[in-house]
Design a protein around this nucleic acid. Sequence first.
DNA 1: TTGTAAGCGTTATCAG
DNA 2: CTGATAACGCTTACAA
Lengths: 334, 334
Amino acid sequence: MSPRTLKKIAKELKVSRTTVARVLRNDKYVSEKIRTLVLNYLKRNPYIPNIHSGMLFSGKTNILGLVFPGDALFGMEFFTREIISGVNRAAEKDGYRLMLFTQDRFNSLECLKLYMSRLVTGFILLGIGKNNFKNVLELKRKKVPLVLLCSHIRSVSSFDCDNVKGGYLATKHLLGSGRKRIAFIHGHKNWVDAEDRFKGYKKALKEAGRQLIKEYVQYNYSHNYLDYERIAIEKLLTLKEPPDAVFAANDRIALAAMSAIKKAGRKIPQDIAVIGFDNMPGCENFFPPLSTVAQPIKDMAFTASGSLIKIVSLGKEKDCSRFFKPQLVIRQSA
Amino acid sequence: MSPRTLKKIAKELKVSRTTVARVLRNDKYVSEKIRTLVLNYLKRNPYIPNIHSGMLFSGKTNILGLVFPGDALFGMEFFTREIISGVNRAAEKDGYRLMLFTQDRFNSLECLKLYMSRLVTGFILLGIGKNNFKNVLELKRKKVPLVLLCSHIRSVSSFDCDNVKGGYLATKHLLGSGRKRIAFIHGHKNWVDAEDRFKGYKKALKEAGRQLIKEYVQYNYSHNYLDYERIAIEKLLTLKEPPDAVFAANDRIALAAMSAIKKAGRKIPQDIAVIGFDNMPGCENFFPPLSTVAQPIKDMAFTASGSLIKIVSLGKEKDCSRFFKPQLVIRQSA
DNA sequence: TTGTAAGCGTTATCAG
DNA sequence: CTGATAACGCTTACAA
């Protein structure tokens, strides 16, 4: 199918391209005769405008960039599909398109170029880690429209779960069911959300008059979940006084921890309770079914994209950050 | 930052835009004096060409479309991230960009429009179900460049796992460990890959001189994994002679099945062995660790995209389908 | 060695 | 009502 242009159509119909354009636009200054002539032609030969022409003329683009830094979404990769779905729903609603970028490490220069070349009108940055905050701020300083999803920086429009609250709820639940020695297993060191969950953990502990015990907080910076299992959890299990509950920074870590705990012959939740974070698909079928904290990821993605669209269409950015309510999902592991 | 154009630069430097363009292109017909003048200017004021202008001029685009129909990837949503990663690697290698489309149901007209509007140069169609084969064929008839990933249609370039072989291997393993009554739990009815896995199951059974027992094959067309668990597996467990092994069409189903089996008080693998398909992230930590069939999904995605790029850059399509070797991963559930 | 001009396919403006 | 014409920013002849 060779592309049909206004010019070609006009020539074939022996009218000017302006006239054809007018019919297309439903402009009223067209005689009925010519209108039906053109309309009939178009019915048989559909016309699809060259999109670059329009974008060149208007200087605008309706393409949103969704950026996945390689190390982003620490342990929540399984949300990718839902994030895409949420973002897409917002984009579709307002006639925007989605472009995808995955970068080994967050590349702000690349984003700037994409923006300057007028390919992309604004970005949704996914799960940006602390190590990249500076770059994001730099990008923002250069007036590139952007929002953060599943991470947050003050002064940048961020859409995240209220992780402090989530961590608080999880820990409080553990406390409420009589657990005395509650451990926390951290995620990746660049991951702010995990830090917030940890803050919530500390808050709940403090509120209950409990001391924070250093050995019960395990940092494990590896991304390999087998390592989490081997190192973080095994350290906990071999303590003189092992914990009777574990709050893992996400469900993937929780799953690995459960596996190690069972392998060590302890019962869940009798000996050690386990609670995760994310409510990952399938976790209702873990053994035992995993108690966890759900975040409304699709809604978060939808809202973040909607805000970006507002920013780019209005041309002015104001901070419209939002933190979403997490929800405790109690099953049987805690 | 207002966009810098060749014209503006030329004006500021009091040369013609052609000259600036020549310096940019490293054309040799430029005097050293002017070259350094322009180069110095560019160093301080980076120039990023308007991409639509180029695409308008060349009539070409370097944008690949990755299409997720809403119901695609039946039960393997967790691969999304890896698929994106594989596709992106291929795209990056040859300077292509990625555009993302998720559709409630596969919309071939939308794809056609995207192609005709010159936004997208070709498509990677993900996990297309049988109900959409006709639409894909139609699109192909209209000369829209496309490849299939995680699905296959004869006469369309398809990149899929050799699911027949995978099903065969899984079943053979079950047979080899002395299982007598092997059940199969199907996935979604539109999902060809599951059908192939079923073919492999039948082949292995036949080869071993076993009869296909109808009650041991459960179809469950729902997408809700709790339903799978409730209906498909419970039917199997309440049979007069329940199976001593279950081959599930994917790991999500296998996980649900394991959960139901344990809830019913049967031991895995002693009473009933379970094997899945996909080697989904985390399944090594299921209880017991899930035996399954791994497919090289990232490699598949990479290859599929590379082929699409070849097709669009060479401008001629020849069928370059490839079926990838699955790999049996034996853990403890079977 | 450098600059001018046409053209890609639109939209918008201004004459007829 | 209808049709030229310019402009968006680039590339590529072609002319100087």
